[in-house]
Design a protein around this nucleic acid. Structure first.
Lengths: 153, 153
DNA sequence: ATTAGTTAGTTCGATATCGAATTAAATCGG
DNA sequence: CCGATTTAATTCGATATCGAACTAACTAAT
């Protein structure tokens, strides 16, 4: 026996990506509200990448690391450069490429962002059990890797 | 003994939101590539909402359903209205409010989108085991609900 | 070496999204 | 009944993001 009038549910995959999209929106806006004016999560991500891993990177490598297109990374790097937070110079080994480095100002900005984000993270830790995060992470990593692999295919 | 040079890992919550952000990006662009020119997932989401649930809604209710701001929903509805896919009329019971309905053209567009999305969903089903989706969904729903509750607080 | 193909970065045009601020209408307390 | 508050929708300005198209430079194959 079928329940007559219940609306058709979206397929599970649609529900999954729907939840993910909403979580992305909510978390992004929550984090960005506490960042210094003008700073965005995307820009912070680049600064954090340098501060965590050190070294120098080509824009294309950064785009690949963050899974955005090169155009998008060009945009983000231009804003960071205008603000004096990163520096770009030509790659002597490849006339097409550039090399991006973080500036001292950029490192200071990253530290400021970390300090501002800490209370929000603490608040989220109080609301979201660490066990839940641990339970979700492997599945999400796997999903991301499969999506990425399928993208290249 | 500490391993000396390993870079500090991001906190688990940061890793979680990072994975979610990347999955959102990859899935969004994958879906939007197959939609009719000019259509976006956001616009499709609104059409699909009407087609699945029927009825009429105020813009504010739609904004709430999709967890976006009213400004964002205003923008989306204006594009849909310009394209003739939804119709807006004043709410006789509330001078501030409007009532949104889907048009026959909008319903046809939604059906076209569903047809175009089907192969992508099928492809994803082949790549992502249904069990993985089922395992992730409850945790993500819970996470979304907690984030939403914390947002209002 | 010349050509074809690929890759790095950019520019352009479009949409989504947010926060801040505005206008109009409804609601509520006194 | 009226001022204060809230709510609905909008407008404005900003950023992120994508796809398409472009230039410059590297690479490989003949």
């Amino acid at each position: 026996m079928t329940t007559a009038v219940s609306p058709a549910a979206d397929p599970p995959a649609v529900q999954l990506f729907n939840e993910i999209a909403i979580i992305e929106q909510l978390s992004r806006s929550r984090f960005e509200r506490v960042l210094p004016p003008g700073m965005t999560l995307s820009q912070f991500g680049v600064l954090n990448h340098f501060a965590r891993l050190g070294g120098e990177y080509a824009p294309a490598a950064l785009a690949s690391a963050f899974q955005v297109t090169r155009q998008t990374m060009t945009n983000t790097l231009q804003r960071l450069e205008t603000a004096g937070l990163v520096a770009l110079r030509p790659d002597p080994a490849d006339g097409r490429a550039k090399i991006v480095t973080i500036t001292p100002l950029g490192a200071a900005m990253r530290a400021d962002c970390i300090a501002r984000l800490a209370p929000v993270l603490a608040e989220l830790d109080a609301v979201i059990p660490a066990a839940d995060i641990a339970a979700l992470l492997p599945g999400l990593r796997s999903l991301r890797q499969r999506l990425d692999a399928a993208r290249r295919a």
